[in-house]
Amino acid sequence: MLMKKGAEANLYLEQFARVLHHAGESKVVVKHRISKRYRNPQIDKQLRESRTTLEAKLFSDAKRAGVPTPLVYEVDCVGMRIVMEFIEGQQVKLVLEKMGPKARRNLCRLIGRQVACLHHAGIVHGDLTTSNMILTREGKVYFVDFGLGEYNPSLEARGVDLHLLRRALQSIHFRITEDAYRAVLSGYQQEFGRGAGEVIKRVEEIERRGRYVQKEGRV
């Protein structure tokens, strides 16, 4: 069953038994990176292949770093498919603005801590938006999309990662951006420890570098 038609992949919800092995009972998600007719076939193949294998690796390394991610059951580099665990819960995008301020701050702090865990493990997510995060009933936050992630321990990459999260908050959750972002940073600092200040400073620098930043904000 088609669950979501995303920009770069289709997500299907299937029975474990149907896709993998008859002994399984649970549901799985099949992420199929579809070919894009608009782009050059070589770019298309290269992007889909590298993103599929890389994403599978990132899922498991992120989990090892202590960040909840779906279990990867199968990687198919020819069919450009990843078969993974189905995470039951709600998209953070849909719940973030409905929560009370305190619960929201706690959630954002947790997200910030998890981003710090990734960065500690040398991973940058590359697409930190609230639509890529699933909040489960136990209060865990799963990062379910590493399609644009990479292994990159540089200050710049970490800065861009946090900057993107802030941009996502600005465009999607513009009513609560600043409050949410502050909480993210506090969680990030708490988990990252020494060196977090340097990353946050870099975020500000990246923002000043942007093309459309007012002078007042460029001090």
Binding site: Q42, I43, Q46, L47, G126, D127, L128, T129, L148, V160, L164, R167, A168, S171
Partner: peptide, 10 residues
């Protein structure tokens, strides 16, 4: 092949 750069939405 040339560097293809998409950083999140940017």
């Amino acid at each position: 092949p040339l560097p293809y750069v998409v950083k999140g939405m940017d």
